[in-house]
Every structure is written in structure tokens, then in C-alpha cells.
Write a protein that binds this DNA or RNA. Structure first.
Length: 423
RNA sequence: GGAGGGAUGGCUGAGUGGUUGAAAGCACCGGUCUUGAAAACCGACGAGUCGCGAGGCUCCCAGGGUUCGAAUCCCUGUCCCUCCGCCA
């Protein structure tokens, strides 16, 4: 959520910045609601004040043994007026909240203008795509022989699921272990294991609700609903919801491995072949909770931590800055890391690293005690994939393939493969 | 699933329906003392919101209710703890 104070004071500026994201901020509607809120609030509060004052004097009169009946008669009629004013205030407030909860985060000034992915800006490249002296296969045909099975998954569940068998399943697991070990041992992250279902409050905190419910899998449970997590960002970032973190606990860096569940509503026809886009996939996620002035530096670090995985796996990639129009709802700035896929002759997204600034923190009421002011202030939150496991597996299959359709095991994964060096 | 007990400021923890936004302790902050620090002592010390300001309003798990007035009484829900049952 944006800072209501800031929006109130700079509605035109907000509209201008949001335009970069392709979002039209309803300046007039907001202004009208604000004005109404202000007048209703003043009225409600003055009635409240009057009732409080009179009730207090009844208490004093009673204590000194006076007759309180006349005083009570006087105050009685106040109640109805007060109830009405309160209700009106609640309605306006609700409308204002609903509006604000649906407004995306402001893009940072450094974010390039642009409408969609074609306007993203490449920042750097690492590695050189391998020149094969044969026609490289894509992961689907490569995977067939080594245990990548979509048919069985379709029988068990439906489309957009996969079954992995044998050494391929083990390679998948090796990637997870390798990434977790690297981030904890080399990059100083704290490993966490979290629930794969969350409540609506958590999803509101990170911004998936109320706007993007159709992207989620919902589980009815008793009187309410739980949701399968679309990313570990949700449970992990919500660690600090409704918390005031002491300064010596900052910054926080968490790494979590979880499955992720996405309905992929609106993606029908996109990436239907293979395991690029599934309803269920696994991911190692990085989350930072930091002091506000350090968040953009933290974004660089987090991105570098994710990149390091690809470097150690010797997979060529590039880093791009998302343009305003391609950015997510809560992000102020996003780097995507795209890995080279020989099967597609393309760079494809394998990680997305974002600085959410105080957008999620305000929704979550996640604060830290700033020693300079002694006051609780909103933290900044960041997250990024470090990396998406399924897509990394795809990248390994395609980049490490041999002329006879076998897969070499990357050196850094071999310790996890029990002596297997080729699939 | 059954039976009890809880939820109060950053933390621990008092609180009779009426000047209680809330005792006390700890932590944090400022000061005295000290070469410096510790200890001791003194002082300040919850959050949000509206207002230029004085000041107002809200918040004692959440949501309803009773009342002129609720942290305090009633109802519903959530979470935590203890015991029993069941269970990976």
C-alpha cells in the first residue's frame, strides 16, 4: 500500500509515477473520498468527544453523591447521532481502503519507461552460450529418456504437472541442496522451513490479495479459506507482519525451499510444452528485511546472490531491468535473471528479484525500531528466486546435453549425485 | 474430538464498569557521577490518526452486544498453554 499521507499531499505526482506502470490512478475519485472522509471524521469525533465528556461528568457526579438522572437524560440522544456518524465514517474509510489496496507500488525513478517485456533493458550478460556441433534438443525430448514424464502426471492430476523419476528426480533434489547450501554457507542466509498454506491476511500483506485471487489455489477449511502459496515470499515475508523488530536484528536474510502453486489463470496456450510453466514447481527463495535506506543496495546483493548460482553451474545468463509496464504489483524495482536455453535459442526468466520498498511493510505493519528516532518505522522488504528449481533443471538438461542425447552432471552437483556424472 | 486455563505497552506483569492510555519491573533513551565504562541515582519513555497549534479521536487478541460510560460484564471467533483421546 502507498502512504496515504503522501498520496493525499501529492496526488498528481502519484498519478504521474503510476502511469509508468500503465496504471491510471483515479485522482478525482480519491480526492472526493478524502474530502468526505475528513468532514465525516471531524463530525464523528466531536460527537464522540461530547459523549466522553458528559459520561465522565456523570461519573464524577455519581461519586459525589449527586442526582445523575438529568445528566443521563441529556446524553441519551447523543447515542443515535454518534452511531450514525460512526457508520458513515466506516463506509467512507472502507471505500478509501479498498481503493488504496488496489493501487500498485510506485516505480523507482531508475525504472525504464515501457509497456511490456520488449521495453526491458539489459544490464549485463555472463557466460557465452555453447556452440553445439549438433542440433540441440529441448528439455522435453531430452527428458523423455531420463525420467521426465508428463503423461503420468496428467493421469494423476491434469495438465501442467510433471513426474520426475530416477536420477532426474535426484538431480532436481541436488539442485535444491546445492542452492540452499550455497546461500546459507556462502551468502549468510538463515534457512527457514515454512507452511505451504497461508491465510488471507498473509496474502494481503504481500499484495497477492485482494487483486490477484484468481492466480491462487484456494483450500476451504472450516469457516474460512487457506491458500496454497504461490511463492515462499508470502510466508517468509510475513514473518515480520505486525512486528516491531529491534535494530540489532536487522537486516534479516532468509532462504526457503518450498513448492509453489499457481493457477496460471490467463496463461492458457503459453509455454504448454515442457516444465517451464507448471501449476506446481519448486523454488529456493531469498527474502531480505532491511532498513529503508539500504534496500536498493540490498537489491543488488540479492540479485548477485542469485546470479552466483548460475555462475557456479556455469549456465550463461543475462540480467535485465524490468520496464514500468512489465513490473509486478508491489515492486519498486525488479531485475529479472534470464538463463540461456539452447532448446529455444532464447534467454528465459529463471529468477525475479524485487525491492518492494515499504509497500508490503505498510500492508503488514512490519516495522523496526530506528535507533536514531527511537520510533518504530516501516521496514523495506525484498525477495527474489535463488533460483526456480524446475527451470534450472531445464537449463541444466539443455546446456549440458551431449550429441548422443545424454546429460552431463554439472561439477558442483556431482557431490550430491552419489557418483553419477552423466544421465 | 473431550475438559480446563490464558491473550494487557518492545518484553514480563497488575488492573473494583466511572479523571486508567493503563501499576510495577526489565529493556531502550537523556542526564548526574566516572579518565572511560559498569553500578548507583535523577528524568523521559506505547502506537495510530486528525489538526498550523492548543488539543481531539481510536487502540488492552478480533468481531458483535449490554450501558450515559467497557481493558473490566455478555456472545461469537482466532491463537496459545495443560490434561485425556486419536493420529503421521
Amino acid at each position: 500500500m502507498l502512504d496515504p499521507k503522501f498520496v493525499r499531499a501529492n496526488p498528481e505526482e502519484v498519478a504521474r509515477l503510476l502511469k509508468k506502470k500503465g496504471y491510471v490512478f483515479p485522482v478525482a475519485e480519491f480526492a472526493a473520498l478524502e474530502e468526505k472522509r475528513r468532514s465525516v471524521q471531524v463530525q464523528a469525533e466531536s460527537l464522540q468527544n461530547e459523549r466522553n465528556t458528559r459520561s465522565k461528568s456523570i461519573g464524577q457526579a455519581k461519586a459525589s453523591g449527586q442526582d445523575i438522572q438529568p445528566l443521563m437524560d441529556e446524553v441519551k440522544s447523543l447515542g443515535d447521532q454518534l452511531d450514525q456518524a460512526k457508520q458513515e465514517l466506516q463506509e467512507v474509510q472502507q471505500a478509501l481502503d479498498d481503493l488504496l489496496m488496489g493501487v500498485p507500488n510506485l516505480p523507482d525513478e531508475s525504472v525504464p519507461e515501457g509497456k511490456d517485456e520488449d521495453d526491458n533493458v539489459e544490464v549485463r550478460r555472463w557466460g557465452t552460450p555453447v556452440e553445439f556441433d549438433f542440433e540441440p534438443q529441448d528439455h522435453v525430448s531430452l527428458g523423455e529418456r531420463v525420467g521426465l514424464d508428463f503423461e503420468t502426471a496428467a493421469k494423476l492430476t491434469g495438465s501442467r504437472f510433471a513426474v520426475l523419476k530416477g536420477d532426474l528426480a535426484r538431480l532436481h533434489r541436488a539442485l535444491i541442496q546445492f542452492m540452499l547450501n550455497t546461500h546459507t554457507a556462502d551468502h549468510g542466509y538463515t534457512e527457514v522451513n515454512v507452511p505451504y498454506m497461508v491465510n488471507a491476511d498473509s496474502l494481503r500483506g504481500t499484495g497477492q490479495l485482494p487483486k490477484f485471487e484468481e492466480d491462487l489455489f484456494k483450500i476451504p477449511f472450516g469457516e474460512r479459506d487457506y491458500y496454497l502459496i504461490p511463492t515462499a515470499e508470502v510466508p517468509v515475508t510475513n514473518f515480520v507482519r505486525d512486528q516491531i523488530v529491534e535494530a540489532d536484528q536487522m537486516p534479516m536474510q532468509f532462504v526457503a525451499h518450498t513448492p509453489c502453486f499457481r493457477s496460471e489463470a490467463g496463461a492458457s496456450g503459453k509455454d504448454t510444452r515442457g516444465m517451464i510453466r507448471q501449476h506446481q514447481f519448486e523454488k529456493v527463495e531469498l527474502v531480505h528485511i532491511v532498513e529503508p535506506e539500504k534496500s536498493f543496495a540490498a537489491l543488488e546483493q540479492l540479485t548477485a546472490n542469485a546470479e552466483r548460482i548460475l555462475q557456479l553451474l556455469n549456465l550463461p545468463y543475462r540480467v535485465i531491468t524490468l520496464c514500468g509496464g512489465d513490473m509486478g504489483f508491489g515492486a519498486a524495482k525488479t531485475y529479472d535473471i534470464e538463463v540461456w536455453l539452447p532448446g529455444q535459442s532464447k534467454y528465459r526468466e529463471i529468477s525475479s528479484c524485487s525491492n518492494m520498498t515499504d509497500f508490503q511493510a505498510r500492508r503488514m505493519l512490519a516495522r523496526w525500531r530506528n535507533p536514531e528516532s527511537g520510533k518504530p518505522e516501516l521496514v523495506h522488504t525484498l525477495n527474489g528466486s535463488g533460483l526456480a528449481i524446475g527451470r534450472t533443471l531445464v537449463a541444466v538438461l539443455e546446456n549440458y546435453q551431449t550429441a548422443d542425447g545424454r546429460i552431463n552432471v554439472p561439477e558442483v552437483l556431482q557431490p550430491y549425485m552419489g557418483g553419477v556424472t552423466q544421465l
